[in-house]
């Protein structure tokens, strides 16, 4: 695909569905995609694979910014399976020759996109937080955190088309409905030969603890300074008052005070809630990498030099065991007033 770079045009997103309903990441990608398409003076298309996808949701993709929606719907596309999804996406890339294809940096996007990029001979950049167009060339400028978020790197794909990127979930707001938008829904048939899979999904087991850390608006996170497992209850009370999900530093997980799904940081989850309240977390660089893009950060720590204060908007240097009960109580009061 190196040759005839100029034959490629249009911005495409990969919308995702679960149980036939379009997922939030799709609308975040529409925000990104609309911006890129407008800068490039071209159309935005959402492609989506699934089975019996809710028709109103497909129309909603148009209402929220897509000029066109291209679907492939088959029983075998109901859930993500890398081989059929890749075959379908490659077919679309071949037929429509998009200039830009973006997907969410989700478990689906981060598996499918590299599989497709190899076969499409395309450049792919992982987990971007900023996307822009270079005016002179039309190249996609892809900016992503690297080395644990210590640096940002801007990457481009000068010769190969399409230019592909995955975009970090929650790194932008989902697109909202605009009045009077129209667009076309194209329902493509996926040829049977594309639907073969050497992977069979036999079951799905939902997470037992619905703590919803990844999608939470408010997260109360706890670090080693909480000293022992029993003290986690203090964090739970605070989280309850704030309707918050609970997160943890690696130290807390390694000590078994909370389990791995709670871990925030380089080797755990990367999140960017509206409020991240860090309690007794020193702020190792690996931890910061997982939360420093949060909208507002509050830190409570007894060490005035703790690194967490460097990324915080508000900090209290104090004994957390003195602060926590008072804070939970005061929030409870304030909420009932």
């Amino acid at each position: 695909m190196t040759k005839n770079k100029h034959k490629h045009s249009g911005v495409w997103i990969l919308a995702e569905q679960a149980d036939g309903r379009v997922q939030r990441i799709s609308y975040e990608l529409l925000t990104r995609g609309r911006d890129l398409a407008d800068k490039r003076g071209t159309d935005l298309t959402a492609m989506i694979f699934g089975n019996d996808i809710n028709a109103e949701d497909l129309q909603e993709l148009i209402n929220c910014g897509a000029d066109r929606v291209v679907t492939m719907e088959e029983a075998k596309l109901e859930h993500f399976l890398v081989e059929p999804y890749a075959a379908c996406m490659l077919k679309i890339i071949e037929d429509y020759q998009p200039e830009i294809v973006i997907a969410g940096a989700t478990s689906t996007g981060r598996t499918l996109m590299p599989y497709v990029a190899i076969k499409a001979n395309a450049g792919l950049t992982a987990d971007c937080t900023v996307l822009d167009i270079e005016e002179e060339t039309g190249n996609l400028l892809q900016t992503r955190p690297a080395i644990g978020g210590n640096i940002l790197a801007t990457i481009k794909t000068p010769q190969h088309r399409p230019q592909m990127a995955t975009v970090r979930p929650h790194s932008t707001k989902p697109a909202v409905k605009q009045d009077g938008r129209t667009g076309e829904i194209v329902r493509l048939k996926a040829p049977a030969k594309y639907l073969k899979s050497r992977i069979n999904r036999v079951d799905f087991i939902p997470d037992e603890s619905e703590h919803g850390l990844q999608d939470a608006d408010v997260v109360v996170a706890v670090g080693r300074g909480i000293k022992k497992s029993e003290n986690i209850s203090l964090i739970k009370s605070l989280a309850k008052e704030l309707d918050a999900a609970i997160g943890a530093s690696r130290d807390v997980v390694d000590r078994g005070w909370l389990s791995y799904p709670y871990q925030v940081g380089l080797s755990g989850k990367t999140i960017s809630p509206k409020l991240y309240l860090a309690v007794a977390i020193s702020g190792a660089i690996q931890h910061l990498a997982g939360m420093q893009t949060s909208e507002t950060i509050v830190a409570i720590n007894s060490d005035p030099d703790a690194q967490i204060f460097n990324v915080a908007d508000f900090g209290i240097v104090a004994d957390v065991f003195q602060i926590l009960p008072v804070l939970s109580e005061r929030i409870k009061q304030a909420r009932s007033e």
């Binding site: 990029a117 792919l124 640096i151 481009k156 794909t157 240097v317 003195q322």
Partner: peptide
Amino acid sequence: SPTRVVRIFRPKVVRQCEKITAMDDSIV
């Protein structure tokens, strides 16, 4: 390699931490 790193930079620190010290019980 299809991709090229064109720029490396440090993230801007935009946060101004309003920091209160309350090591003393009385000001908790």
